[in-house]
């Protein structure tokens, strides 16, 4: 039953990820990426990580992608980008080697995953992946990384302000 939901979601997310790479307009890439994030939220729900699925929708598909859309609209890339979808046409050898590299990477990863022999997982206990369960672990075992993450976000906020405000030359 889980497979019945997993296969379409996985295929759709792979298709949308390819759509991000091979789309000619940046706004199309961004829309494909939003679709992929939502599909991955579905994958998280299948793994009964409900809290992370909600965070995926809120943070990735909401906040981060709105930021992407905002910057794309702000820079008005339709007119600025003279070469819409160009790979390195002046270096065919390099493109072919890149393609082989990525194919080899994918093949090796899939092969390792197929060869490894995982047994059936442990039975999932009640309340797995809920906000309460994740929050308990987050605020007991990982409270120091949590605080460091808040400092990281503060630094990123100040850095973004400074970088986008001043004129660098």
């Amino acid at each position: 039953m889980e497979l019945f939901f997993f296969i379409p979601i996985a295929l759709l997310s792979v298709l949308l990820a390819l759509g991000v790479v091979f789309n000619s307009s940046p706004i199309g890439s961004a829309v494909s990426l939003i679709g992929m994030m939502l599909c991955l939220a579905g994958v998280f729900v299948l793994q009964s990580a409900h809290f992370l699925a909600i965070l995926q929708v809120l943070i990735y598909a909401g906040a981060i992608m709105v930021l992407f859309m905002f910057v794309i609209m702000l820079l008005n890339l339709k007119t600025a980008e003279d070469s819409v979808w160009k790979s390195r046409e002046h270096n065919t050898l390099l493109s072919v080697l890149t393609g082989f590299l990525v194919l080899g990477l994918a093949y090796k990863m899939v092969e390792i995953a197929m060869d490894s022999n995982f047994g059936p997982g442990m039975p999932v206990k009640d309340g797995f992946g809920t906000t309460e369960a994740v929050g308990t672990v987050l605020f007991t075992d990982y409270v120091l990384p949590f605080e460091v993450a808040s400092i990281l976000l503060l630094v990123a906020m100040i850095g973004a302000l400074v970088l986008a405000k001043t004129k660098i030359d």
């Binding site: 996985a10 994958v43 899939v110 995953a113």
Partner: peptide
């Protein structure tokens, strides 16, 4: 299956 999906998405 999840690891295969993860590997394919990473390669993309």
């Amino acid at each position: 299956y999840y690891l295969i999906l993860s590997g394919i998405l990473f390669s993309i």
